[in-house]
Simulated scan of single mutants.
Amino acid sequence: MVGSVIGRLVALFFVLILLQGIFLRNFALFDYALLYPYVALILILPFGIRNMTALFMSFFLGLIVDVFYDTLGMHAAACVLMAFARIYILKLMSKEEQADDLTTLPSVSSRGFQWFALYAFILVSVHHVGLFALEYFNTRLFLSALLRGVASATFTVTVIVSVQYIFGGARKTRFRSS
């Protein structure tokens, strides 16, 4: 069963990276809120994944996106920040018995809309605000980075949750091997 989860995550990795790097690179809502659906890969890592594995995978994911955006590690840093925050957010929001579960992924179907939306919004906001703070790298522009980060996080979370409903992720709690 764990192999099935890994296989599906790898396939999703390639789909989201290509989608982000080729089609969504310059996509913005009202020229303000940017869409970064690749962060869904960090959101849906299994509950029981080891922290160092999640941090390493997030760093690798961010580096690949940095290649498409030519941003010299900004996405990598924001992804690691998000993965680091994920450790603590899951401790606050999750049940203790899921700590070692490698087959259940955080999703709308496994935890409910309200739980997943809050979880996703917090973590995507951490990523986006961190990314824009690095991009602006100026304390005078922190409010602008904060507002753009929250607007982009709202846009991204809306798309991620919608995609879960459209493609059936909201109906399946576990990946089952065929």
Rank of each mutant, 00 (worst) to 15 (best):
I22M: 11
I22T: 14
I22C: 07
F23L: 14
F23D: 04
F23Y: 15
F23E: 01
F23Q: 09
L24I: 04
L24S: 11
L24M: 05
L24V: 06
L24K: 11
R25L: 09
R25Q: 12
R25G: 15
R25S: 15
R25K: 15
R25T: 08
R25Y: 00
N26A: 06
N26G: 08
N26S: 12
F27S: 11
F27K: 03
F27Q: 05
F27H: 10
A28L: 04
A28T: 06
A28Q: 13
A28E: 11
A28I: 00
A28N: 10
L29V: 12
L29R: 04
F30I: 01
F30E: 04
F30Q: 04
F30G: 01
F30M: 06
D31E: 12
D31Q: 13
D31L: 00
D31P: 00
Y32A: 07
Y32F: 15
Y32D: 00
A33K: 12
A33P: 08
A33C: 08
L34P: 00
L34Y: 14
L34T: 12
L34F: 13
L34E: 11
L34Q: 14
L34A: 11
L34G: 01
L35F: 08
L35H: 08
L35P: 07
L35K: 07
L35G: 03
L35V: 01
Y36E: 01
Y36C: 02
Y36R: 04
Y36Q: 02
Y36F: 15
P37A: 05
P37D: 02
P37W: 02
Y38G: 02
Y38A: 03
Y38Q: 11
Y38F: 15
Y38N: 01
Y38H: 13
Y38W: 14
Y38I: 04
Y38P: 00
V39M: 08
V39L: 05
V39P: 02
V39S: 10
V39A: 06
A40S: 10
A40C: 01
A40Q: 09
A40G: 14
L41N: 07
L41Y: 08
L41V: 01
I42E: 02
I42F: 04
I42H: 09
L43K: 08
L43M: 05
L43E: 03
I44R: 05
I44C: 07
I44N: 03
I44Q: 03
I44D: 02
L45T: 14
L45H: 08
P46D: 06
P46L: 03
P46K: 11
F47R: 09
F47K: 13
F47C: 10
F47D: 10
G48K: 10
G48T: 09
G48C: 05
G48V: 01
G48P: 02
I49W: 08
I49Y: 11
I49A: 15
I49M: 13
I49V: 14
R50K: 15
R50I: 00
N51A: 14
N51Y: 07
N51L: 07
N51F: 12
N51C: 02
M52K: 14
M52W: 14
M52R: 15
M52C: 01
M52F: 14
T53G: 09
T53Y: 08
T53V: 13
T53I: 10
T53W: 08
T53N: 10
T53C: 00
